[in-house]
């Protein structure tokens, strides 16, 4: 099942609606990376509240996605990682490294606002 991507002002919001297969994840990554350019977005939020598993593949894909988005000039925030999932990820040894995280959509938006505030590249 593919993930709907919403445009909200300067940001793109992708809310995962069901468990994702590898192909779904790769498609999400590619869609987001191309839309960021298309809409000249400054921030991307990926809401993973629904996911009850984040394995090495998912983590690697989200990480590389954030990296690509950064190269295209936008910031990424992953929001909604569940307590159990966070626990499982660290046990597995997974890290999101430099990718920003927030509790939920609301906090994610606040984080993007604070980070892109004063960002005057478009004057």
């Amino acid at each position: 099942m593919s993930v709907p991507i919403l445009k909200q002002g300067d940001y793109l919001i992708a809310s995962v609606q069901s468990e994702l297969s590898d192909a779904d994840l790769l498609k999400l990554r590619d869609d987001l990376v191309s839309r960021v350019g298309e809409f000249r977005s400054r921030g991307v939020i990926v809401d993973v509240t629904i996911l009850d598993v984040m394995d090495s593949f998912a983590t690697r894909t989200l990480r590389s996605m954030a990296h690509m988005i950064m190269l295209r000039g936008a910031k990424t925030v992953i929001v909604g990682i569940q307590p159990e999932v966070a626990f499982s990820m660290v046990q597995l040894g997974l890290k999101l490294e430099s990718v920003a995280t927030a509790l939920d959509l609301e906090e994610g938006l606040a984080l993007l606002d604070s980070q892109t505030k004063g960002d005057t590249r478009r004057g």
């Binding site: 626990f87 990820m89 994610g108 984080l111």
Partner: peptide, 12 residues
């Protein structure tokens, strides 16, 4: 370290 990392994943 794990506790710190996991909390961070949740945005704290």
């Amino acid at each position: 370290v794990q506790t710190v990392d996991a909390s961070q994943l949740m945005g704290a």
